[in-house]
Design a protein around this nucleic acid. Structure first.
Lengths: 108, 108
DNA sequence: CTATTATATCGATATTTATCGATTTGTCAA
DNA sequence: TTGACAAATCGATAAATATCGATATAATAG
């Protein structure tokens, strides 16, 4: 029903979910780890719900380990989605915001 | 209540609104122009509602002219928001997706 | 085996939001 | 000045979604 762009935006369109994303950036956390990070503000079923949304949008990696499920932010997916948004809605800037390796960036 | 990142994501988190954004990219349209572009699928109050959301997120320019209000997509704002998202949630890619002029891009 | 622990799912509820018809406000044309 | 038009706002409604407690499922520890 929703296309990928909309799915991506919806995944980001919640304060709590963005906070979870921050916690999942560069590290692997289990569901209960995330619950803990949120400091009792939301509880486990809610966190599972949010993680599912992020998973559906391809924004997290998941690793199963016994009865644990570890999540980590998929930075590449996020970057690609942002890139698509810019190409679609900001063509005048698509050339200045560049997937660097695609054109061979050289810093001066 | 919502911070800017969330406000931005929410503005994009609707199919109809993204379609409106497409129509507003690089051109100025009045409200009734937009209604027309949407081909009778949504009507005027709904379009006004969506345009208000986009305006609140700073994603459109507005120009008043008599009884008309013309809207156009703010590509710069969109690009900056995407850039912030990448910096915040994809630090490993913040260097590869670059505001080119900031570092002096050279194409090969 | 049994108790415990981790997480997903279910059902219910409350909030948010998209949509519309009707109305209001403001501008212009005749 | 009046009638027509553009667009915002209002009130109502329906759909989507965030949240929770309770339960189910599955894996482990004892």
């Amino acid at each position: 029903m929703d296309n990928d762009q909309v799915l991506f935006a919806k995944a980001l369109a919640d304060e709590t979910r963005q906070e979870i994303m921050k916690h999942l950036c560069c590290v692997w956390l289990s569901v209960s780890d995330v619950v803990e990070k949120l400091d009792g503000r939301v509880n486990q079923p809610t966190v599972s719900h949010h993680l599912k949304k992020l998973e559906e949008a391809g924004l997290v990696y998941v690793r199963e380990e016994g009865r644990f499920r570890y999540y980590s932010l998929n930075q590449k997916q996020l970057t690609m989605c942002c890139g698509l948004l810019v190409r679609q809605f900001a063509p005048d800037y698509a050339e200045t915001v560049i997937p660097a390796e695609a054109i061979g960036v050289v810093k001066r």
